[in-house]
Design a protein around this nucleic acid. Structure first.
Lengths: 190, 190
DNA sequence: CCCAAAAAGTTATGAGCTAACATTTTGCGG
DNA sequence: CCGCAAAATGTTAGCTCATAACTTTTTGGG
């Protein structure tokens, strides 16, 4: 390489610093009451630099790598199942491998998101891309758009409920919450 | 009366003018590209006045009277049903009485909302209150928080899917879309 | 026609975000 | 170790949404 990624180390370090400072400020003072200027100052950078690392204030919390995995997992499910069941199983599979160390960071972020209506809404906007991927997959396999959309939306809503409830406690397991939430939607058969 | 609502007529007229101007501009140029200043100018008022009538730009489109009815309708369902089924039936009942004339206005607004990711997210924030009411009702009747949240979220997601799909066409019936979407989630039994 | 209250205007301010251009920092090839 | 191109960051200026404090206009009943 040598050409692309000259000072990539510095960039990652700055990103991490901004992220950590932002999380601490959000936890201490709340998301809305924390300004980008404060975060930037705490991280020793300019507002401009903050926005170069995170396209928006909310993206500090919402830029997670798990969502894209869902669409792939849904595609893996047998095409003979009902759309909702396929989606539910895909989500279950995608979230089954969340290691303990990262689990703590995820919990911190979800906790902050759960507190703010604006952030919960923003989380849905983030989900939109995942939802679109699931819908496309289901439609490709013969489900009509409306049913596909309803199934994907409902399953993701259940997932969000599981994440928010999980984040409210310190000791419960995420997998358990996801199972309960998805069972509520999926009822039984398969 | 006489004391409260001195010049209420003028206020309503101004609101209606702002609403109509905003809708036309949104339809012509898109939601994001339309500034509050443009809307205000078109309606012959100041930006300040715009915000006195609508707390935020998005509220021109999202301030609908139907959502609150849902929580009440859910409460009306037999408490013996599963939470998801109760919620689905409540939604079905609440949206069953949408008269034709208002239907056109609703469709205009939903169409604009469907176009913008930011607006779709904002619609979810609007739903949050409805969701809370449903959850509270279910919890009061013995369902645990997580299951209640999952059921309410999933059912509302299906409703949104129905509204968005319905708004994409000119000739289909909303009731039909809602039935299909909710059936996808509710599967069958009751 | 007068007058209290409601509606709308004025001015100022702050936060989030973007764009154009200048400056510093980084790390590899010589 | 030094220079150099690219990457990272800083600077400045501006737009839009939104809020607050204060003033002026408009409304409709007595």
């Amino acid at each position: 390489m040598t050409t692309s990624g000259q000072a990539a180390g510095k960039r990652r370090r700055t990103s991490a610093r901004i992220l950590e400072c932002a999380l601490e400020l959000f936890e201490r003072n709340g998301f809305e009451s924390t300004t980008v200027a404060q975060i930037a100052a705490a991280a020793g950078v300019t507002e401009m630099t903050f926005f170069r690392h995170f396209p928006a204030k909310e993206q500090v919390l919402l830029d997670d790598p798990y969502d894209p995995l869902i669409a792939a997992a849904v595609a893996d499910q047998p095409r003979t199942l009902r759309p909702l069941v396929r989606t539910v199983r895909g989500i279950r599979q995608a979230w089954s491998r969340l290691s303990e160390p990262e689990s703590d960071l995820v919990r911190r972020r979800v906790r902050i998101v759960a507190e703010s209506p604006a952030l919960r809404a923003a989380a849905w906007r983030n989900n939109a891309e995942t939802e679109r991927l699931i819908v496309d997959q289901l439609v490709r396999d013969g489900t009509d758009r409306l049913r596909a959309h309803a199934a994907a939306g409902a399953a993701l809503a259940a997932l969000m409920a599981a994440l928010f409830e999980w984040a409210r406690h310190d000791d419960i397991l995420l997998a358990g919450c996801i199972d309960i939430a998805l069972d509520t939607v999926d009822s039984d058969d398969g």
